[in-house]
Design a protein around this nucleic acid. Sequence first.
DNA 1: GAGTGGTCTAGACCACTGG
DNA 2: CAGTGGTCTAGACCACTCC
Lengths: 255, 255
Amino acid sequence: MGETELLPAARLRAVMEGDILAGRVALGGRLPSERVLSDQYGMHRITVQKALGQLEAEGLIYRQDRSGWFVSPPRFLYDPAADVSFTDSAVRQGRKPGSILLLAEETVASETAAATLVLPHGTPITCIRRVRTLEARPVFVEESHVNSARCPGLAQHASGVVSLAALYRDHFGIALRRRWVRMRPAALGRTEATHLRSAPGAPGLLLTRLSCDAHDRPVSYDREYWRHDALEITVRVDAPAPNKAGRHRDVTELD
Amino acid sequence: MGETELLPAARLRAVMEGDILAGRVALGGRLPSERVLSDQYGMHRITVQKALGQLEAEGLIYRQDRSGWFVSPPRFLYDPAADVSFTDSAVRQGRKPGSILLLAEETVASETAAATLVLPHGTPITCIRRVRTLEARPVFVEESHVNSARCPGLAQHASGVVSLAALYRDHFGIALRRRWVRMRPAALGRTEATHLRSAPGAPGLLLTRLSCDAHDRPVSYDREYWRHDALEITVRVDAPAPNKAGRHRDVTELD
DNA sequence: GAGTGGTCTAGACCACTGG
DNA sequence: CAGTGGTCTAGACCACTCC
């Protein structure tokens, strides 16, 4: 069976993939510029962009604004059933989480937020918008809608705080528990793209969830837009047993 | 604040998005051809493709080979903790699931499969590859690795069967339970793209999981490549449960 | 065969970054 | 400022489906 000749974009994609997986490009390292690649491989810059776009879709590389292409760091592992604090989970995974506050204000519940939190329309809601980072790289933007009555003065406390979960616990005496989580692929809008230093239309993940207190009363309704290469969902259903499968970056056997 | 003028691609994207969300294009319906759109909106076909690509990233539309662009049907809702059979879940959601057998053969366990199933290297494994459909539209390709000793003759029984879970239950007396599920975005390879009637490099979701029997013995290790617009994950976390922190292993210990 | 998407080259301008 | 990605137009050929 004669080896199918790869088209230019597929060829470049394959070469770069090999370079990255073999570690010939440092993790977090920068790729050569599109123009350089287009010279090196004798193809138009548009074709190079296509190849890079596919590597981006694979989650191997990511773009940063007009700044360049970089090798993606390991994914953040998220267990919807168990994890309650991004900060804590990240630290446990040996990462360096950060938070940038974009907005913290009291308003009234939007329709969806009210319905989800099981609150009457027009209930005072504290809305907190933040960019979350790992090793200073923005990985998702988060918008939390919190019942103001449960957390008076939350908007004021939010600035300078890294972990809202810790704030709920230590300041308001609320132990958060997840109620449900939903996740689906979604394209980044202009706003999200800007905050993530990505490009509009770039692939992302939308994660929504409801968190409750110990008595199962709804506390917070969150929407998170993730860079799609920064996240991996792991759900453990039951009692554990040793397994070491599914390492990061086992992109093999694609073809 | 003067409204930012939308660039051509963003403009077309916005218009189409409105048309689709408002139902002016039938669900499952075909979009006008790229060439027609490029005439109608006075932009180059490449630009049209870019706009369509973004709608695809949003999950609003999908492509079918060289056949055209279509409005995406509703997503299949998948709860990793609860669902054990695609067929059953789909029916419960009012969908029409189907299955196309690509391969059913006995081999020996690959390295990852063996490790995941906690079996010695070289153990006989039945490998089953199938395309799963909803309303006749292919939505994911699945590769199951099953311990042959647990299901003798499975390869022969697999043809003509829609639900493997039902086969395990009725023929082999095995009640499947999920052990863990992992999910992450991934690009479709050439093979997967072909089976899904999509294009290589198109965005997808890779779902891997381990299923066990009632005694928590590993039975099946599966890899599924989904069209990324066909799936939504929902995880319901169970209501009140006293603190089990002691026995619950952390996700981080995976590595 | 007509029509569709898939891909490629060529060349250009713009917006933003700080390599 | 130079360099980078973001975007656009123009025109062309190919592979596949069956509109």
